[in-house]
C-alpha cells in the first residue's frame, strides 16, 4: 500500500514539470494565437469575433501569394536537398571506409554548429556586388564590372539548401547504414542493372530516412527567416517575414496571429500528407535521434 502511494507520488512529481511545460508554453500559447486570429479589431478595445482576418487574407493577393510562394519554394528546396544530400549520405554510409566515414560525417555536421546568421553572413560576403565571387570573376576576366549575385531566387534556394541539407543527410545515413550489401549483390546476381538495383532496392530501403529527412527539411525551410530575408533582400516575399511585419512593424497582432495559424496549419498539413502517403508516423521519424 505504502509502495503504491510512493509510486503514485513519484508519477505526479515527474508529471508536473512536463504538464506545466506543455500546457503553459505550447498548448495555451497556440490556442492564444488561434483566439487572436478570430478576433477582429473594430476600434480601441472594441472587438468582434469571426473569420474576418481570414477573409482579409484571402482578399489580399499579396498575402496568399506569399504563402504559396513560400510553400512551393520550400517543396523545391526539400526535393533539391534530397538530390544533393542522397549521394553524400550514400557515400558516407556505404562506400567510405570505417575511419573516413566518421570524419566525413563530422565534416557534414560542422555547419550545423554554426549560427544561421553566420552562414547567411558568409554567403553575403561571398556573393554581394563587392564580394569574393564577383571580384574573382572580374580578375579572371569573365565579366566586365561588378555583378550582384544576391537578391534573387536562385541564391535564396542555394542558401536554403545549405542550411537544411544536413538534416536530410543525417537520417539518410542512419537508415542506409543498416542496409546489408548482400541485398545489392542479390540484385545484381538476379541480373538487375545499377539503376534497377538502385530503384528497386536502395530507394525502398532508405524510404523511412527519406521521409524523415524531407519532413524536417520542409518544416525548417518553411519556418526559416534569416536566409530568405538576408539573401533575398526586400523582395524575398517569405511568409515568416509577413508574420514579423504584422507583429512588430505594424503592430497588427490579429493579422499576425492569423498568418501564424495559417503557416502552422499549412505545414502540419503537408507533413501529415507526407506521413500518410508513405505510411510512417511522427514519433518514429522525428524522434529517432
Amino acid at each position: 500500500m505504502l509502495r503504491n502511494d510512493a509510486t503514485k507520488l513519484s508519477l505526479i512529481l515527474l508529471m508536473t514539470p512536463f504538464i506545466l511545460w506543455i500546457v503553459l508554453l505550447i498548448i495555451l500559447p497556440q490556442l492564444g494565437i488561434g483566439y487572436l486570429s478570430l478576433r477582429e479589431k473594430l476600434g480601441p478595445n472594441d472587438y468582434k469575433f469571426g473569420f474576418a482576418n481570414y477573409v482579409d487574407f484571402l482578399q489580399e493577393p499579396i498575402y496568399w501569394n506569399t504563402l504559396l510562394r513560400t510553400a512551393w519554394m520550400s517543396i523545391l528546396v526539400t526535393i533539391l536537398s534530397l538530390f544533393v544530400g542522397f549521394p553524400i549520405a550514400y557515400y558516407i554510409a556505404k562506400i567510405a571506409r570505417r575511419r573516413s566515414r566518421a570524419a566525413l560525417f563530422l565534416l557534414c555536421l560542422i555547419p550545423l554548429w554554426v549560427s544561421d546568421l553566420v552562414r547567411a553572413f558568409g554567403w553575403i560576403v561571398l556573393l554581394r556586388e563587392t564580394g569574393i565571387i564577383s571580384g574573382a570573376l572580374q580578375s579572371v576576366g569573365l565579366i566586365e564590372g561588378p555583378v550582384e549575385l544576391l537578391y534573387n531566387d536562385v541564391t535564396v534556394v542555394i542558401g536554403l539548401i545549405y542550411t537544411v541539407v544536413l538534416f536530410m543527410i543525417v537520417p539518410l545515413v542512419s537508415t542506409l547504414d543498416g542496409m546489408d550489401n548482400s541485398l545489392l549483390e542479390a540484385g545484381y546476381n538476379l541480373g538487375g542493372s545499377r539503376f534497377t538495383v538502385f530503384r528497386m532496392i536502395v530507394v525502398p530501403y532508405a524510404m523511412p530516412g527519406i521521409v524523415a529527412g524531407c519532413i524536417i527539411t520542409f518544416m525548417l525551410t518553411a519556418g526559416s527567416y534569416l536566409t530568405p530575408i538576408l539573401l533575398g533582400g526586400k523582395n524575398s516575399m517569405w511568409f515568416t517575414e509577413q508574420i514579423y511585419d504584422q507583429f512588430i512593424t505594424r503592430y497588427n497582432w490579429e493579422a499576425g496571429s492569423t498568418f501564424g495559424v495559417l503557416l502552422l496549419v499549412f505545414t502540419s498539413f503537408v507533413v501529415w500528407l507526407g506521413l500518410r502517403l508513405t505510411g510512417q508516423n511522427l514519433a518514429s521519424t522525428v524522434a529517432k535521434d
Partner: peptide, 11 residues
C-alpha cells in the same frame, strides 16, 4: 516541428 517564429509569437 513548430516553426520557431510561431513558437515566438504564440508565447
Amino acid at each position: 516541428v513548430i516553426p520557431g517564429v510561431i513558437l515566438g509569437i504564440s508565447i
